[in-house]
Design a protein around this nucleic acid. Structure first.
Lengths: 116, 116
DNA sequence: CGAGATCATTTCGGTTCCGTATCATTTTAT
DNA sequence: ATAAAATGATACGGAACCGAAATGATCTCG
């Protein structure tokens, strides 16, 4: 992963990834859902609804709905926090891990293909 | 260690950008809209509805609606092709160019901030 | 000239998402 | 014990989007 990107190259990378995501659109995630998904898989737990809402500067229902949708896809899971039963902890799934891993491969492949 | 770090960095970059976009959500573009926008601004014209639909492998109404929304934001413009009045040519705007430029700066800034 | 092809848009019914406000449950503090 | 606070989910009306199909305008070509 070269870090010395010029503006046009950086945008081309972003464009190629966006187009790839749109094309073989397995799940049609929105930007918000993607931000939630990557937060869950890249940052250390625990992940609560309130915490993620604060991190993304969105309201709690946005996170709840994103988890509803992605939970339906099997990309994330939810469990009550036994220590504090008001909290809900977002958990990773095998399917979600595979999806994220594939996305990482895509970013790398596209970055490698850039004329640097 | 280094081998596993590369995908993680790539995903972290993608995550940081997604979160930034969600946070200061000037326009709340979807992935499809973003793909359309970047295609218009990074690839040489002309850009027709049919051409972009084919490129993104989506139906034409998807492109039409994306242009409706982004046109409302002032990010793109449309004109009839005078050579073939069936066609509509997508045009760039000053506002859209600024938005794309800012996005490029964001990608670069986030890439630069990655721990190599 | 006229039939068919091409292109973008609109329409349709249905789904999803939005933000605000409210609700139910659980914890904390008095 | 009980009131207040905290947390996530849900209700609601409105907006945006979906794919498929229909529409209107324009072009092509026999």
């Amino acid at each position: 992963m070269q870090i010395e990107l010029k503006p046009f190259q950086a945008l081309t990378l972003w464009k190629e990834i966006a187009i790839s995501e749109v094309r073989d659109d397995a799940h049609d995630l929105t930007m918000r859902q993607l931000a939630v998904l990557l937060t869950v898989y890249l940052e250390p737990p625990p992940h609560t609804i309130r915490g993620m809402a604060a991190k993304l500067k969105v309201t709690k229902p946005v996170i709840t709905r994103a988890l509803d949708t992605m939970g339906g896809y099997g990309l994330v899971d939810r469990h009550r926090d036994e220590k504090d039963k008001r909290n809900v902890l977002v958990k990773r799934t095998v399917k979600g891990a595979l999806y994220v891993e594939k996305l990482g491969d895509l970013v790398i492949a596209k970055a490698r293909g850039l004329p640097l």
